[in-house]
Design a protein around this nucleic acid. Structure first.
Lengths: 219, 219
DNA sequence: CAAATTTGTTAGATTGTTCTAACTTATTAC
DNA sequence: GTAATAAGTTAGAACAATCTAACAAATTTG
C-alpha cells in the first residue's frame, strides 16, 4: 500500500502527465514543492514498487498500476470536494485543502457512501470529471472562453484552474458553473472578452481569466 | 503543531490517564502497540514541546496544554463517529477505524459543520461524552449492569468497551443504547445476569459483558 | 558546434519514528 | 531483606522523507 507521500507523488504524476504521459523530474519536484534530489529518489523508490517506469535522465511514466492508483486518489479527492460543497455547506473555494487531506483516508465504504449520497456525480464542484471506481475517467473536450467569438452563446462548464483566488474572483462576479454567457465582444489589444449574463449585462474578463473558463457552446 | 503520531500519543495518554492522570510507559507502549524504548523516546520529545511532564522512572502526566490538545482530538474522533452513524449510515461497530484516521484532519470548519449538522451532540454512538470545543468534557457516572440487583429497571446508556466484536455481540442480541432492561436475576456461581427487554423476555449476559454495559437506573 | 543554461544525479547529512540488545532501577515475593 | 521479576533506560541501527553542495548530462543558443 502506498504511503500518503507516495500517493501525493502518484497524484502529481497523474495530473502532470501530458499526451505522452511523461513527466520531467523538475516538473514533478516543482509541482510537489520538493527539491529535485528528493523527487529523484522518490521516483526510484516508486519504480521498485512498480508504480512508475523510470530510467536515468528520462522522464517518468506511470505504469497502468500507477495510473489506476492515482486515478482512485483523484476520485477520492473530487468526491470529497463534491460532498463538502453539496452536503456540508462549504464554498467551492474552500474545499481543496481539506480534500487534500481526506483523499488519503483508507475506507472504501466512506467514499462509496459519499458517492451514493451525492447520486453518483460525474464532475466535481469545479467541473473536473470524477474517475469511476475502476479509475476510468471520461475526457470532456470543452472550449476555453478565450477562444469564443462575439455573438456566441455558451454555458460555463468547468475551470482549468481552481485556486482559491480565482474562485473568489468568480464569486465576486457571481460566475458559477452552469451560467449562460453571451460573448459580446473581444478587445483586440489585450484579448479581454466582454460577456453578458443574468444580472450582469456587461462584464469584462481578462485573457488570463477567460482562458481558465471552459464552456460548452450552445446552438 | 503535533504530528499525527504525536496526536496518537496524546490521545493514548488521555484515554489511559487514571484518577491521578498518570500513565506508565509500559501501559502507553502497550496501548499504542509500540516497544517501550519507542514510547520512552517519544515521551521525551513530547516533554520538549510541553505536552507532558516527565521525569526518569516516573509515570507520564499530561500538561494542561497536552490535556486540551488530547481532548480536542478525542472530540474530533467522537464527532466523526457520530457523523458516520447518523449521517452516513455506518453501523456503530464500523466507525472506529475510519474515525482514527479522520481525527487527524486539520480543518476546524469540517468538524464544526459535523457538530452543527448533528445538533451539537454530547455523546458519541457508544455513549461516550464528546468534549466541547474548548476540550472540556462532562463526566457521567453510570452504573455497570454487573452491579445491578434483581428487580431493578435500567436504561442502557453507554459502553466501557467499543471493540467491533463486542458491538457485534450486542447487535446480535438487539441491544442498543436507550433500551430499557429489567434485571431478572443473577447467577451466583458465574455472576452472569438475566435480563428482560422488548422482544427479549429472557436473555442471559455474562459477567464480562454486563461489566461493559453502563446503565442509568430508572425509578 | 562550443559555450551557456537547464536538468538530473550522487553523496552525505538531518529529522522523525521505529526497532533490538543490553543494561539499570524499581517492585514484588518469599 | 535479598532474589526474582517487572518496568524503564541507553545505545545503536534502520527506514522514510527531506535537504544542500557538488558534479554530470542534456538541451538551448549564439
Amino acid at each position: 500500500m502506498a504511503s500518503s507521500t507516495e500517493e501525493n507523488y502518484l497524484k502529481a504524476l497523474y495530473n502532470l502527465s501530458n499526451g505522452q504521459g511523461e513527466v520531467n523530474i523538475s516538473d514533478l519536484a516543482n509541482g510537489l514543492k520538493v527539491s529535485m534530489p528528493t523527487a529523484n529518489s522518490m521516483v526510484k523508490s516508486l519504480q521498485k514498487s512498480d508504480w512508475v517506469i523510470y530510467e536515468k535522465y528520462k522522464p517518468v511514466i506511470l505504469t497502468p498500476k500507477g495510473q489506476k492508483e492515482a486515478a482512485l486518489i483523484v476520485r477520492k479527492h473530487r468526491l470529497t470536494e463534491m460532498f463538502l460543497v453539496k452536503k456540508m455547506g462549504f464554498g467551492w473555494e474552500e474545499v481543496h485543502e481539506v480534500a487534500e487531506q481526506i483523499e488519503h483516508i483508507h475506507s472504501p465504504k466512506f467514499f462509496d457512501r459519499m458517492d451514493e449520497m451525492l447520486g453518483y456525480p460525474t464532475i466535481d464542484p469545479h467541473g473536473s470529471p470524477i474517475p469511476d471506481n475502476q479509475g476510468r475517467m471520461k475526457e470532456f473536450s470543452y472550449t476555453p472562453l478565450s477562444a469564443c467569438k462575439p455573438g456566441q452563446e455558451v454555458q460555463l462548464t468547468a475551470l482549468t484552474n481552481s485556486s482559491a483566488e480565482f474562485l473568489e474572483f468568480l464569486n465576486s462576479r457571481k460566475l458559477s458553473l452552469g451560467v449562460h454567457l453571451k460573448v459580446i465582444s473581444r478587445e483586440a489589444y489585450d484579448q479581454s472578452i466582454v460577456v453578458s449574463y443574468p444580472d450582469h449585462p456587461i462584464e469584462t474578463l481578462s485573457e488570463k481569466a477567460s482562458e481558465r473558463l471552459l464552456v460548452r457552446i450552445l446552438e
